[in-house]
Design a protein around this nucleic acid. Structure first.
Lengths: 207, 207
DNA sequence: GAGTAAACGGAACCTGTCTCCGATATCAAG
DNA sequence: CTTGATATCGGAGACAGGTTCCGTTTACTC
């Protein structure tokens, strides 16, 4: 609805790999495969959800299992790579909203809506974010590291403006919102957006 | 904290199996094993969480895989059996709270706390409740069928008293609360109870 | 005490993740 | 263009859970 970028495109490419070292040395086939893989993964995620078997992605990309695991040591790394730029867009929207909205509280609400839309439109992303499987730790902290600071900024602005209670921190809020988005697809009776709206409403100073 | 029964005891026994048919015919060893299994499962769930391998439970009970699956056709059935009486206790607490609390809204809050305590103290129960694996559908609807009507009653009482907004139904609320409880253990920075409190606060009429 | 149906046990199977290593392709130097 | 060093590929198979199957054992009945 709000739109944090479309679905199946490259992303990552080669930019921020080795912390800007001198060597842009990857072999051509490797570069090509990485991109193919990213596209295939994005396509499969859309078609079958984020929990699609790795084998399917490898098959779709026309490469072997080894290749996929060389580029993305774990499922989670692949997911991160596919969605990294969308997380980035979401993070960047924070300060922008703060500047353009009438009140910090409004900005916070809008920003959270952005986040919710992102999670809800990616089948199963929210669940996988909450998986207690250790290998998803990376995914989790990728989201957290990038997004929590932004959320903190919005939260502090709203607190400073006296618009919300001050005993909830950004990490907790984002986890709560993330949790509320779980299973939002495949259940017509559950509207994650409305629940999040309630949560944000509850944030408002109890007079 | 509030206490919906302790952990590892029988439950189910033989009562409500075949809709009160005449035949109480099970063989003695079968009856014995079922109870052993229930106890073992409860113990393992406490020790390793609800997601513990079925094999572990069988081993703990000292029976073979076949036995476990004869009594509980699927993982979810076993979980249900173990927790059924606690769900029951929670359901029964609803009307009681409504009668004993000063306002319906207070009763609703207390009842939801009961539910949250139940979920949070059972490692991983909330996650498994939200699993999109089809075999947990039974578990899901067991919770839903028994608890949603109770929640509806509380909700309607509070609505009638003009204490809350009226555009949220019990199913949605319970799903939201259940979601908020996911991963509440093993993350000290996340306090599910506080998030649920926020949600319930948001339920209050926006003046 | 024998006969029979129910219950048991656990090996085998399925699905999904991730590892290992021989086969293959790329690139640079001669 | 050839050649060799080396990065990359591919996919069989190890591993980990859940679930099924079926030959064996056991409890109850006559």
């Amino acid at each position: 609805m709000s739109g944090l970028g479309s679905e199946g495109n490259g992303a990552v490419k080669d930019g921020d790999e080795g912390a800007g070292r001198a060597a842009r040395s990857k072999r051509a086939d490797a570069r090509r495969n990485e991109e193919t893989l990213l596209d295939a993964a994005a396509a499969v995620f859309v078609a079958s959800g984020v929990e699609a078997p790795v084998r399917d992605i490898a098959a779709k990309a026309g490469v072997g299992m080894g290749t996929i695991y060389r580029h993305f040591p774990t499922r989670a790394d692949l997911i991160i790579a596919v969605y990294r730029h969308q997380i980035e867009a979401c993070a960047e929207a924070g300060p922008a909203l703060l500047a353009s909205c009438p009140t910090p509280h409004a900005a916070l609400g809008r920003w959270i809506n952005l986040f919710v839309d992102f999670l809800v439109t990616k089948h199963g992303l929210a669940s996988v974010l909450r998986s207690d499987d250790a290998s998803f730790e990376t995914l989790h902290s990728c989201f957290i590291d990038r997004l929590v600071p932004v959320c903190t900024e919005l939260l502090e602005a709203a607190t400073a403006a006296g618009e919300i209670r001050s005993d909830v921190d950004a990490y907790e809020l984002m986890r709560g919102v993330g949790n509320l988005c779980i299973g939002a697809d495949h259940d017509a009776r559950y509207d994650a957006r409305r629940m999040v709206e309630l949560l944000v409403a509850g944030l408002g100073r109890p007079r």
